[in-house]
Design a protein around this nucleic acid. Structure first.
Lengths: 128, 128
DNA sequence: AGATTACTACGATGTTGTTCGTATGTCAAG
DNA sequence: CTTGACATACGAACAACATCGTAGTAATCT
């Protein structure tokens, strides 16, 4: 079991983002969050959630009349998948290039840079 | 002009990768490179290149009988787009999270880590 | 010239992603 | 019990992707 989860599409990622920050939610709640940013029909969100449940991206609890959906994987797990996937597909595995790309994609603040440096230092210690 | 280029799809990115490392190439050359890694028909590559030319992802020189294709943007430019796009879509703009994801996606070597740290130090100096 | 080879152009097909309308079921209030 | 509010299910429509076959055209060989 635990078959591979597919890479979430754009629309799916939007929904996952809502679920991650909100926690388990009904279709209505997800829809409200999405519709606040762009006009979207209720049934569109419903359908997406149904498909995502089939794919295993979200889990569904049907105990209540209004089903409760939650992300099947934590945010960090999915982010790791996505980062690894892009790293492989576009950066030929070079974390350095990816970082360079991310940094130049938008001006990084001074704090952000030192935060990153600290992160790396910890990593160097931890990774022995 | 200089309208926005669309995010390249998976198949398109594969072709761009060939063009970036090989330089301007004919369909045949691109096809050979692609087919070496996975079974693919010549016309599939041709069609993709034609579509990519329409989208502006590649430029086409028709002076020769066998048209010459080349990537419209350098590798670094496209990588920056992709990194920025993912950063926005999945990491809420946090370069730190993206780096964390990339590092945990696959074990980083000791050299890679210090290389990254050096890169950051340069950036901190340069970025004023 | 005629046959063969090396191209491009393009239509067709199957799949996936995204959106939405309509049908239908459930429950509580009047 | 009927109605209205709110839910899910599901089919339909359309666009984007990816793949390939066929047709036609230009060059080259014999």
């Amino acid at each position: 079991m635990a078959s591979e989860l597919p890479r979430p599409t754009d629309a799916e990622l939007e929904i996952l983002t809502v679920l991650w920050s909100h926690g388990p939610a009904t279709v209505r709640e997800v829809h409200e969050a999405i519709a606040a940013r762009k006009p979207t029909q209720y049934t569109t969100v419903l359908k997406l959630l149904q498909i995502m449940a089939e794919k295993g991206l979200v889990r569904r609890n049907e105990k209540q009349r209004a089903h409760i959906y939650e992300a099947a994987r934590p945010r960090e797990w999915t982010q790791r998948q996505l980062a690894g996937d892009l790293l492989q597909r576009a950066f030929n595995g070079s974390a350095r290039s990816l970082m360079l790309g991310a940094l130049s994609a938008r001006k990084a603040t001074r704090e952000e840079l030192s935060e990153l440096r600290r992160l790396l230092e910890e990593y160097e210690k931890g990774a022995r």
